[in-house]
Design a protein around this nucleic acid. Structure first.
Lengths: 202, 202, 202, 202
DNA sequence: AATGAATGAGGTTTCATTCAT
DNA sequence: TATGAATGAAACCTCATTCAT
């Protein structure tokens, strides 16, 4: 019984999550079997169950992980002293989504889509999704308020409603990218710019 | 019971699809078992397999069905002699989505979300999704061109890119409605209106 | 309710047996489903069950039919005024087996092999096999006795034992023909002739 | 129960094969269900499928096993310095067949008969049968060549043809023994001896 | 802590047979 | 007689999880 450090435990956990993510990216949550995860992780069944009590717990871990990815960016955007014009902010967000999708380890946006679908009938995943989306929309609302202050959006609009729409553009981007493959940050941002009535500002 | 009319066969098929849809709405594609569908349909296992060769085939049928629902509206919108202003067109589309979701028989948008997720690793569903989305986006592009002709959108914008964005608003609406529950056609359309060049045109 | 003649009934029965034989030749007794037989026969399920009470009854019918085929020849051989030399008799029998196998309608010897295997654990088929084999061996014994009378076989040998061996050559011929494909009546008869120690008499 | 020796695994495999053989001897390949094998083996479904990927694989294993049994003897016969007279060699072979049939564990010759029938429409089994029969016939051909050298068979006969006939006597022996029950190595060998034209040499 | 063989409930699908029309 | 849709028991196989070592 070797003593095991906390780092070791965390590394093992990450190893399992990575393996599971890999499987889920290729097969989805349900076609991915524990045997798949075990094989891919290089550990034994017993070991995996030493770190996660059930398959559901692993699913929640990779869902959490995938749903967190988009949120990261906003710290940066909101930390900027001069508020970005809306169009440029969206461009940055879309670039970030593609960046995430192309990270080594596999396209996490595929996992995110799985998680959204799963959330519909799995309360644990629904809770995770809500917990990730709510602050994300708040970030959009903050950006909207800045834009209103800067005069590029009507001051009487409800920032939460505008945030719904801005945030609402993301799933559609991600899904068209995944399923149709003909959408890029550029094309999508161009479309948004046209809607914004403003002339694209790069 | 031999010699059965075509209507009978179609009715039976619809009965099975309805039963399957009911199950999928509540449990998703994968937790729905054939036993569930069989019980819910009121038929026997053999009967169900007389109408569908496999569970996959049933899944494809309800996916097709769910992914078709949104498209229906556009015949109406595009048939109107006087082009709708963009904001109003989007409002109509969002109302339609809610209308679909509240139809008796269960919220089909939940099935649609399942189908999108499934499409990521199921080529048959991916094909269906692509087949349904492509004309839908074309409809949006047609609306965009009308708006450009009417001067409410910049004439140099690529209509296909704008259509990507407009169409891209729908999954986000649907998902926020399903998972957060605080989005309505009104709130979302208000947000879109604010984005639309700031001069809401109602 | 049209009146149906006896000939009609017999024709229908033969039609079903032919269809079933066709299936069994290609797939064996057990992989052949009633649906296969029904489709192949061109009749309806109900019709087929009007002529045979069960699949087992059909199986028995084609087994009987296949196990009868070899026996036909002996009437001819034994009716000959001048007894055939043993080697030539065997040659005639082997030719007959190939003749049967090549009849239109499919190679019945494949069915015979199925039936022998089935007889091991199916008393009805075992009874049929015994009923067909016993007279067949008697015919061989009769031939043996003629040969003994003619001096070409030791007079003190038990004709029944010799008949066992002669009859016993047939399954081996049939099986090597079916499974290895390198055995012909000529090659096999040559081998037998060599064993007969006698100088081949053609 | 992890970390299990190779012997353990082989023993388990043998346990499953024995259980399956037991079932097949009594019911044949097709009436034998996996549930039967599982029950008889004393293992669980999952355990059985841990050793064999499918029922077909189990069937192939017992077919291989059954078709191998007769071949064993020939090493002995051919190793003898003084070639056996043909009649005596056949007697030995027939005794060996009965010996095999009476081994504890059940009459494998019943399985062999199943396998021959199965081979007709199952390429995997056909391949096994061919692989087992070909060397067996070669052994017979070797015996024939010795007999020719010793003068007890005509030197101009094709040894392969004679081997076909000698080998061909076996299925007929086995089947008459199984289905009619009135054939013994003695009776059959007597019959063969009579055919050999030679006077029985015991 | 780690292993991985074993468990067994439960999944999908088939198929001989029936019976209302 | 004839039809063929319907039945439902039972087939094969999977897989999340456990636990003796």
């Amino acid at each position: 019984m070797p003593k095991v450090t906390v780092e070791h435990r965390l590394a093992r956990r990450a190893q399992i999550v990575a393996a599971a993510r890999h499987c889920v990216i290729e097969q989805g949550f349900h076609k991915t079997t524990m045997a798949d995860v075990i094989r891919e992780s290089g550990l034994s069944a017993g070991a995996v169950y030493g770190y996660f009590r059930s398959k559901d717990e692993i699913v929640e871990a990779i869902a959490d992980d995938a749903l967190s990815a988009v949120g990261e960016l906003f710290e940066d955007i909101l930390a900027m002293p001069d508020p970005l014009p809306l169009g440029q902010a969206m461009r940055k967000v879309l670039d970030h989504v593609v960046d995430i999708a192309e990270r080594p380890g596999g396209d996490v946006t595929r996992v995110a889509l799985q998680a959204w679908a799963e959330a519909v009938h799995n309360p644990a995943i629904a809770a995770i999704a809500a917990a990730k989306w709510t602050p994300l929309r708040s970030h959009f609302a903050a950006i909207v308020r800045r834009a209103q202050a800067g005069g590029s959006l009507p001051p009487d609009a409800d920032p939460d409603h505008v945030a719904q729409a801005l945030f609402g553009l993301l799933p559609g981007f991600l899904m068209q990218r995944l399923l149709l493959g003909d959408v890029t940050p550029e094309s999508y941002a161009d479309g948004i710019d046209a809607l914004l009535g403003s002339h694209p500002q790069r």
